[in-house]
Amino acid sequence: MNEIVEEAAQREEAGGSVPMVETVGLTKRYGGKTALRNVTLSIPQGKIVGLMGPNGSGKTTLIKILTGVLTGYEGTVHVNGRIPGACTKSIVSYLPDRLSLGRWMRVRDAVAYYSDFFIDFDRIKAMELIARLRLDPGMRFSQFSKGDCEKIQLVMAMSRAARLYVLDEPIGGVDPAARDVVLDTILTQYCENSTVLLSTHIIQDVERIFNSVIFLREGEVVLYDEVEAVREHRKKSVYDLFREVFKC
C-alpha cells in the first residue's frame, strides 16, 4: 500500500505534478435519475476546495465515487493518477456524512482501529486532539451526541497524513459555537501539500478556508474557480454568489 505514496513522492521529485483528482465526463445514474452529469474537473495538489450545492446536487455522489464506495459510473476518474480502488484508499482520508465506526466502539478503540489499518495515522496526534476537544476516550460512540461523534470522526480523518482529505459535511451536525473548533482542526491538522475537498452548504462559516470552490447543480458543475477570482472579478463573496446562483 506504500507504493502509491512512494510513487507520488517520486513524481513530485521528478517535477511532474499529477492532479490529485481528475474526472472526465463523469456521469452517474441511479435508475432513471442522473445524479452526476458529464462532470469534468481537475483538482491540483495542495489546495483546499469547497464542494457546494443545494441538497441533491450530487456532492455526496461525487465524494463517494472519489473515495471508492460507489462504482458503476460512466467516464473516467483518477485519484493521484489511479482509478479509485484499494491503492487509492491508502492515501485518501474520508469523513462520511454519517457515523461509520461501530457504535460499540470506545473512542480509544477507534484510535486503535485507525492505527491498525492506516500506516499514515498519527495516534499521538489523535489522542491530543481528543483531549483538546474534551472528549472522553473511554466512552462508547453510542453514548456521544451526533455532534461529538462527528468531531471524533473528524479527528480520526485529520490525524492521518493523507494526500487527499475528503470531508463530507464536516460541520453539518455541530453547533455554531463548535464550528470554529472543527474548521481550525481541519486547517491546522491537514498536511501541507495535501488536498482537501470539503462539501458543505453552510458557506458563510467556511469560505474563509477555501482556495477554490466548485458549485454543483443537478449533477453539473456550474462553477469551478479560485475564491480570490470570485471576489475580484465578480465583486462578491462565495456566500453571495452561491445565493445568486442557487436562487429559487
Binding site: M1, T67, G68, A86, C87, K89, Y94, P96, S100, G102
Partner: peptide
Amino acid sequence: GDEGYMTFTLPAT
C-alpha cells in the same frame, strides 16, 4: 450499512 463507509474505505481488496 453505515459501517460500510468505513469498511469500504479501508485499503483492502
